[in-house]
Write a protein that binds this DNA or RNA. Structure first.
Length: 588
RNA sequence: GCCUGGGUAGCUCAACUGGCAGAGCAACCCCCUUGUAAGGGGUAGGUUGUGGGUUCAAAUCCCACCCUAGGCUCCA
């Protein structure tokens, strides 16, 4: 049923894409060379080349949409026709993209179908389509972008228009509203509004400056993660931000990853580079001693700050940056421990993500593409073994909706990635658990087994939150900036109504401090309304209001973010209530 | 890196085809002393991203670079 619906929607949207192209060709005859355009999950897009210096911008949308509506009014039927290759080549004589398609269809020995709408528009298309353009009433053009022909960097860049289409007005409006909602939650916008972080052009793109509130949030997350890992048998380590190139040559990063590393610099005749990964350091710590089979597994964890030279066009707020801190760990273990370690790591992942309020996950197994072995390091046997172990662990944990990404593995081994759904249904890849047999071999990691023989251990990389920057970005959007009390940088706003209550406010603040709460006193000479509004805009979870009445009765007025309900209670009762909510990491 | 927009006060944004750079919020000062989402008045704040060019005159036009948005490619 669901599938049927999705199929119908895709047909509607693909038809709408024809409608768009027809309108474009009517508006700018001879200047638009259409390339291709499918339906997507949210709508459709159309790729085309522009000629004669024509540039399409969102300013043109009203004009294009009006033209599309005209064609809708015309109720032109979609007419299918099967034609010969010769006819097709002739029909699209001046369109190199369609020629390329035709060649391919001919090669595959498939029939060539075209769809007409009216006398003026025909497109090479497999179909199917709606009956006529009159069905395509509820559409909207959304954005303009550049896109490479056939998705290859080597090809020409075309212009792409994204749009969407729904069977009813209501659904279209709901979709547009949800888009707006997503924009309101944009972590870049909230980062500014809530004073969490900033990016300064002079410091450099993709480098985050954490303001006090953002830094507090980061500390809370970091502390929680580290405490949890320590409880689960990890050991804390710290390693430097730079290392000699020699290290990266030994690890293989220099060969496989150099393009994404910041260029090396020299000091005393030695070349150094910023670290793009923490692994080699952890390996060095392991290798510092002769290890016994009894020592394993060893689990090293670190809040490791790494620097990667991401191309300028891919940077995005907190979610794609050039300097970030991973909640990294490397588990070094024997083969007989491998499966259990992977399983435990999976369990820990689920625990962490649930604690942070994510309810839905999807797991992706990324394996090597056997057809593209050059992209990966190591031999077939190791890869097969590693992939087998990951599969088994997933099965044992009964992880749902497993999806395989062939070719998605790291260059040194296969991995399990966890994708979460946020509060408004968007997907984010967060946790990763990766198996590595490259580094143990390259660094000649060893342990002595019960027979006194040297053995090579296995290594698991895992980052459960991924990068703190990215994780916080996602968390901001997930909660729309309204963090649960345990995460909120400021948990309580104390609002004395008049000057007379300021001394009391300070006394109460002292008690909150003792109780380990994070608070602010909002005592400017502004009206209470004004200060309440500020506290709500700052999304502070708990509000304490103090007036003459409360002072006299030795009580406080307690309100929660987003609610007008309030309670008058003693300070100790308030503390008991909120401390419990915070300890239990409850949502507000 | 590529395509198309954009960069104006701390923030959000104005300024018609080149002609004195402006508003709201925030900041600061004063008044109001506040009872549940913006009380009132005033002050200050700018080499219009950077560098070059065209022009009597440039935020506006041209060139280069930097940053940024939406995408594409990429994300070990």
């Amino acid at each position: 049923m669901e599938k049927e619906k999705a199929k119908k929607l895709a047909i509607l949207r693909h038809s709408c894409e024809h409608l768009l192209m027809q309108a474009m060709l009517r508006l700018w005859p001879g200047k638009i060379i259409m390339a291709m355009g499918p339906a997507t999950q949210d709508g459709f897009y159309a790729d085309f080349e522009t000629r004669g210096g024509l540039k399409i911008t969102p300013d043109d949308f009203p004009k294009i949409e009006a033209e599309m509506q005209k064609i809708v009014q015309e109720k032109l039927p979609f007419k299918k026709s099967v034609i010969s290759p010769q006819k097709a080549r002739q029909l699209f004589a001046d369109n190199p993209y369609k020629q390329e398609w035709i060649d391919e269809i001919v090669q595959k020995k498939e029939p060539i179908t075209v769809y007409y709408t009216g006398d003026d528009f025909v497109d090479l298309c497999r179909g199917p389509h709606v009956k006529n353009t009159g069905e395509l009433k509820y559409f909207k053009l959304l954005s303009v972008a550049g896109a490479y022909w056939r998705g290859s960097e080597k090809n020409k860049m075309l212009t792409r228009i994204y749009g969407t289409c729904f069977p009813t007005k209501k659904e279209l409006e709901a979709y547009l509203k949800q888009r707006e909602e997503a924009q309101k939650r944009d972590h870049r916008r909230l980062g500014e509004e809530l004073d969490l972080f900033l990016i300064d052009e002079t410091v450099g793109p993709g480098l985050i400056l954490w303001q006090p509130r953002g830094a507090m949030l980061r500390k809370i997350i970091m502390d929680f993660a580290l405490d949890t890992y320590l409880k689960h048998g990890y050991q804390l380590v710290f390693t430097p931000h730079i290392a000699r190139i020699k290290l990266w040559q030994q690890s293989g990063h220099w060969d496989f990853y150099r393009d994404s590393m910041f260029a090396p610099f020299k000091a005393e005749n030695q070349r150094y580079s910023l670290k793009p990964m923490n692994c080699p350091f952890h390996v060095k710590i392991y290798n510092h001693k002769i290890r016994s089979y009894r020592d394993l597994p060893l689990r090293y964890t670190e809040m490791g700050t790494v620097y990667r030279f991401e191309k300028s066009g891919v940077l995005h707020g907190l979610t794609r940056v050039r300097g970030f801190t991973q909640d990294d760990a490397h588990i070094i273990c024997r083969r007989d421990q491998l499966e259990n370690e992977i399983q435990q790591a999976l369990k820990l992942t689920v625990y962490m993500l649930k604690t942070f309020g994510f309810r839905q996950f999807k797991v992706k197994l990324s394996t090597r593409d056997p057809k593209n072995k050059g992209k990966f390091i190591g031999n077939d046997k190791d890869w097969e073994l590693a992939e087998k172990f990951l599969r088994q662990a997933l099965q044992k944990e009964k992880i749902v909706s497993l999806e395989e990404d062939r070719g998605g593995a790291a260059f040194y081994g296969p991995k399990i990635d966890v994708v979460v759904n946020d509060a408004i249904g968007r997907e984010w890849q967060l946790s990763t658990i990766q198996l590595d047999f490259n580094l143990p071999a390259r660094f000649q990691m060893r342990y002595t087994d019960q027979h006194g023989q040297a053995q090579q251990p296995f290594m698991i990389h895992r980052a459960l939150l991924g990068s703190l920057e990215r994780f916080i970005g996602i968390l901001i959007e997930h909660y729309g900036g309204a963090f649960p009390p345990w995460l909120a940088p400021v948990q309580v706003s104390i609002l004395p109504i008049t000057k007379n209550e300021i001394a009391l406010a300070e006394k109460i603040a002292l008690r909150l401090k003792q109780a380990g709460l994070r608070y602010e006193i909002a005592a400017s000479n502004q009206t209470l309304s004004y200060r309440l509004r500020q506290a709500e805009l700052q999304k502070i979870p708990y509000l304490l209001i103090l007036g003459a009445k409360e002072a006299k009765a030795n009580k406080v007025v307690f309100r929660r973010r987003g609610s007008k309900e309030q309670k008058t209670l003693s300070l100790e009762n308030f503390l008991a209530t909120v401390n419990e909510e915070i300890a239990k990491k409850k949502l507000l």
